[in-house]
Design a protein around this nucleic acid. Sequence first.
DNA 1: GTGACATATAAGTCTGACTTTTTGTTCCCG
DNA 2: CGGGAACAAAAAGTCAGACTTATATGTCAC
Lengths: 233, 233
Amino acid sequence: MSTPGRGLHGRVLDTLGPAITAGEYPAGSVLRTDELAQRFEVSRSVMREAVRVLESMHLVESRRRVGVTVLPECEWNVYDPQVIRWRLAGSERPRQLRSLTVLRSAVEPVAAGLAARHATAEQCAELTECALGMVANSRGHRLEEYLFHDVAFHRVILTASGNEMFARLGGVVAEVLAGRTHHDVMFEDPDPAAVTLHVQVAEAVRARDAERAEQLTREITEGALQELDILAP
Amino acid sequence: MSTPGRGLHGRVLDTLGPAITAGEYPAGSVLRTDELAQRFEVSRSVMREAVRVLESMHLVESRRRVGVTVLPECEWNVYDPQVIRWRLAGSERPRQLRSLTVLRSAVEPVAAGLAARHATAEQCAELTECALGMVANSRGHRLEEYLFHDVAFHRVILTASGNEMFARLGGVVAEVLAGRTHHDVMFEDPDPAAVTLHVQVAEAVRARDAERAEQLTREITEGALQELDILAP
DNA sequence: GTGACATATAAGTCTGACTTTTTGTTCCCG
DNA sequence: CGGGAACAAAAAGTCAGACTTATATGTCAC
């Protein structure tokens, strides 16, 4: 997905990034550029570029006379799409999925409320189309087709909110929804109640009912939280 | 703040990053590595490292035979703390501040609710301490001291939520609050109502009343939205 | 023990030569 | 006149080697 192997330094990152985010090198571990360059069979300049990228993600810190130090998890740029992808691919996947779902539960309802205010006529139409697509594929194990429309639906909501920070979470939501379909739960057809909620959200947005759009979306995300057993006793 | 001038490539970024995020090079503009290296009087290797970092932030894209292309704003990693800082420093500051405040309004109430469930005794104590500090400095133009406790308060809430994604927004909130005090509104003492709300949130968290903590925080962030005139007619 | 100094180490920087990919042009043939 | 294949140029990508600089750490005198 996205940009695989854009140059040698990218290949190095494809190995080193997942390794670090998976915790293979505990915080405080020290790596040396030369050693890494040898290990990956690339020149020092290529290795340096890779290290610079990791540094900009706050995964490592490079200091003279010391080496490349792995930073503690709390320093990482966990919003970097690349970091998110690496972590979702590793053993920390469940925890990452929970974090992201909680984030969704905070952001999406507010985004839906804003979308009800700012969505263009075209976006309203898209939304309805997505919702209908979900309905049409909600039965008969058409999981892939359902997922496609589900992702599109949430993307439109986030974009239509008019807030760039929300809009940029579209990719995250896509990953979470795809993960749910492909890895975790959802062996059978999606919950009919959820499908209905999506249709109702589309209606609420079209009707410019921000309050209702927000509340309905809150119900959707609460469902997502329940699927992962994230809730108070 | 943070890491100024960590190496030559960092200096280049300190100039080029703000320039790009400020829109000095419109999307689609093409730069050449060699030319940039000359302009900044650094070697090509240093320039390449800088470009790699910009690339990892999705500010630019480097392609063979073409050059370094500036990407449209919608591609940027707007959650990268560095990008946020650059944009807050430029002419897009007001818009950026609004985006971030809307994000806060979505995240912080949910974070407060979670904090009420997960906060340790120590965190509860910190929270109360911060709230008291806010009260103590809420009169007599002690804006800096007030800001300090305000930032600390929101950081504790975000951290205590137990969600790493929320916790990492502490820096963002700090920037927004600092910006409000230093640049924009707030020439006089803070709104007493807001101060009271903070105290009540601390109480609610201590009392493990998630519902109330969330609702009170929602009132706080709604106040922040109103200060920036972000609300429906 | 404490402070100044020396040393070794690993990152940082620069340069120049070479490779590879891609784009756009040219030219030939249908 | 149009289309496709071959070609040429441009810019990033890669590599190797020499040199510089900061700094952690050990040493030695006091």
